[in-house]
């Protein structure tokens, strides 16, 4: 079973994402900021990461840049999932190594479509 790490400081969003992702067949791990997420990845690199932008301690874009420097850090498919919905944020995310980008609010269909686009759901 593929693992998806959900990184978001909102417990509600993590819960919603968990429910959708479990239905899509993922095993879920959770982190509430970028620092926690890095620790997770160093222990067990997930196949996918659903990543918020604005979080305390370490934000999503900083986490992503750090992740891509890790030995296996290029492997996970990273899907940003954030309220930031302007072109500058999207371009910055792609330049930092994001594979897909979801603008909140989102639903199960959008998340499934993005993970399909990223090759994680068939």
């Amino acid at each position: 079973m593929k693992t998806c790490l959900v990184v978001d400081d909102s417990r509600v969003i993590r819960k919603v994402a968990r429910r959708i992702l479990e239905e899509l067949g993922f095993e879920i791990a959770e982190a509430s900021d970028g620092m926690e997420a890095i620790a997770w990845c160093r222990t067990a690199m997930p196949e996918a990461i659903l990543l918020d932008w604005n979080m305390p301690v370490m934000d999503g874009i900083t986490f992503l840049r750090e992740l891509r420097k890790e030995p296996d850090g290029h492997e996970p498919v990273v899907v940003f999932c954030t309220v930031e919905n302007d072109m500058e944020h999207i371009v910055a995310a792609l330049e930092a190594g994001a594979d897909e980008y979801i603008m909140k609010p989102f639903d199960g269909d959008i998340l499934e479509a993005k993970l399909t686009e990223a090759g994680l759901v068939t």
Binding site: M87, I90, A113, K114, E117
Partner: peptide
């Protein structure tokens, strides 16, 4: 709308072909 461009449109195509 934001909802419409998120349904089926890969993000790289949004960047290449759309403006906010």
């Amino acid at each position: 709308t934001q909802f419409e461009v998120q349904r089926g449109l890969p993000i790289r195509l949004l960047v290449r072909h759309f403006e906010k």
